[in-house]
Amino acid sequence: PQQQAKKESTRGQKNLGLFFGHLYSQPRQHSMVGASKDVHPAVLALGLQYSSYVICGSTARMVAMLLAFKAVIESYQTPVGTSLARHLTNHHLSPQIDYLRSCRPLSISMGNAIRWLKDLIIKIDPSTPEAEAKRDLVEEIDMFIRERVTAAQKLIRDQAATKILPGDVILTYASSSIVEQTLLQAHKAGVPFTVIVVDSKPLFEGKTLARKLANQGITVRYYLITGASHAVKDASKVFLGAHAMMSNGRLYSRVGTALVSMLARSHSLPVLVLCESVKFTEKVALDSIVGNEVAPASEILSEAERASLLPLEPHLPATHPSKNKAEDKHAADDA
């Protein structure tokens, strides 16, 4: 399988050069094969959940990572002759992070959390007993999650829910946990409003959101991105989730967000982005091509679509073995 993967990646290098060739650095890991023996089982499991999109969304991924790191830290034992502060980050945490990165590129929020954690570990006084240091670390991680995620989200949804007025039609793209919480909070507060969910392939995250909202009794309409220009006509406000906020004020979010906000702007709709401060980055971006995340092209073609292509095979000219190249990226930049 490794050989095959290598072959695939060299071919990928060759023919995916149009837009995102520079982003295909390493083939994506879909198994535990080849993982370093130091990688903790919790992290191994997490990596697979990342690559199969079971855990998806930058906040969820960051929280899951920190929880896995708690397990890593708890089972960590400083080897003789080194100190925890020196050894843990470089020799024990790094392979875990590398493995996670090979499963799916790190999100901005994950990068921020990792930087914070490393900083924390380095600052531990070498004289602190190991057990105490580990306990402190685990506590700090819990605190981080509570402060930067739980409390932040509560604050955001309290604020954002007040923006939803009776009779509003809220349009949202794909799925964002914080948008979902906001909508549910406003619904619980008794504000009558309806929701339009715009979604796109291949993950159809919006479907999950639409289902959850509908189960709570909110009227939901569901469009795919091709119908977005019809969807915005009826909307009165747009709520978007974020992957990251760039320091030049641009939103970095899942691909298609820019289209939705462009259409919203042309209809003069207010576009609200709900974003925790842990997602802020000092990076800047002008377009979505220089820096982005790419996924294997095979993910775009659903099994049903692949099957429907099979009858076409006899029509293929014999010379070209592969011509249906596809490009996938999971984030788009919003001007």
Binding site: N15, L18, F19, S200, K201, P202, L224, I225, T226, V255, G256, A258, L259, M262, D287, S288, I289, N292, I300, P317, T319, H320, K323, N324, K325, A326, E327, D328, K329, A332, D333
Partner: peptide, 25 residues
């Protein structure tokens, strides 16, 4: 009929959501 690729034209299929991201090129 021949597909474009048979004429030596590289063809990239993108989902509709990628349009904005790629438009700059």
């Amino acid at each position: 009929w021949k597909p474009l690729t048979a004429a030596g034209i590289p063809v990239y299929v993108i989902p509709d959501s990628h349009v904005f991201a790629i438009m700059s090129r």
